[in-house]
């Protein structure tokens, strides 16, 4: 059957998978870092940062990731910024977008830690940094794990949008295969299957983390 054609295209598929995973892992790392920093800055209520951070969040949560990605990719070319290839543009867009969403997850976690914890820590003379590092953040982790994993699942799926700027991730490679051998149904099913095999275990993990967090 035509499945032979797909099998022979496995090289293309593999490239797509690697590129998807690369972009996913990189954005998870950068997005989480940015999200954590923004959350800490917001909860610290530093003068002058309140409005800019709020604007950042409003813009990146209230508009589509696709448009943000196009803006960054074509905008970089427009501004003459070199070195912004499809990977960098996609990574930047994903970092900013996911960073905004992740920062809200962290912020909710930080604010969920009872106020008394901070007061007790202050009474002992711990510095601001020490309080966040040794008392608040360790307690934030179990609270934010489940929503974070949920967000990461979304992130992996969002990497598909990089197709629009020509990044050779799974969906684009899938289209390349279809261009070569046809068989859109089978090809797309295989691509969907690959995404499912990445995301579904993460969903199960997130669900387990959520029940654990409730019982903590």
């Amino acid at each position: 059957m035509g499945w032979q054609g797909i099998f022979e295209s496995s090289g293309i598929l593999f490239t797509g998978l690697v590129n998807t995973l690369l972009l996913s892992v990189a954005s998870i790392a950068t997005g989480t870092t940015l999200g954590l920093i923004v959350a800490l800055l917001r909860t610290a209520r530093i003068r002058g940062l309140g409005l800019p951070l709020r604007l950042y969040l409003e813009i990146f949560r209230g508009s589509p990731l696709l448009v943000q990605m196009l803006f960054i990719y074509f905008g970089a070319a427009y501004l003459g910024i070199r070195g912004v290839d499809t990977f960098m543009a996609a990574l930047t867009a994903l970092t900013l977008y996911e960073g905004a969403l992740i920062s809200e997850i962290f912020r909710a976690g930080i604010e969920a830690v009872p106020r008394g914890q901070r007061e007790a820590a202050r009474s002992l003379g711990l510095s601001r940094y020490q309080i966040e590092r040794y008392v608040i953040l360790p307690q934030t982790v179990p609270i934010v794990l489940a929503p974070l994993v949920g967000q990461y699942i979304g992130l992996v799926k969002d990497t598909a949008l990089a197709t629009a700027i020509g990044y050779f991730e799974l969906v684009r490679e899938g289209q390349a295969i279809i261009d070569r051998i046809g068989m859109p149904i089978e090809t797309f099913i295989v691509i969907a299957g690959i995404y499912f095999m990445i995301c579904y275990p993460m969903s199960l993990a997130a669900r387990r983390l959520e029940t654990r967090a409730l019982h903590a």
């Binding site: 009872p114 008394g116 914890q117 007061e119 007790a120 820590a121 009474s123 002992l124 003379g125 711990l126 510095s127 020490q130 040794y134 008392v135 360790p138 307690q139």
Partner: peptide, 25 residues
């Protein structure tokens, strides 16, 4: 200070609760 709600650090053992400030401050 001792608080009505204790405010012990739940992720640390009793000894760790007591020694945290000794080590950091």
């Amino acid at each position: 200070m001792v608080f009505q709600q204790f405010n012990l650090f739940p992720h640390l053992t009793a000894l760790q609760n007591v020694t945290l400030a000794l080590r950091k401050v």
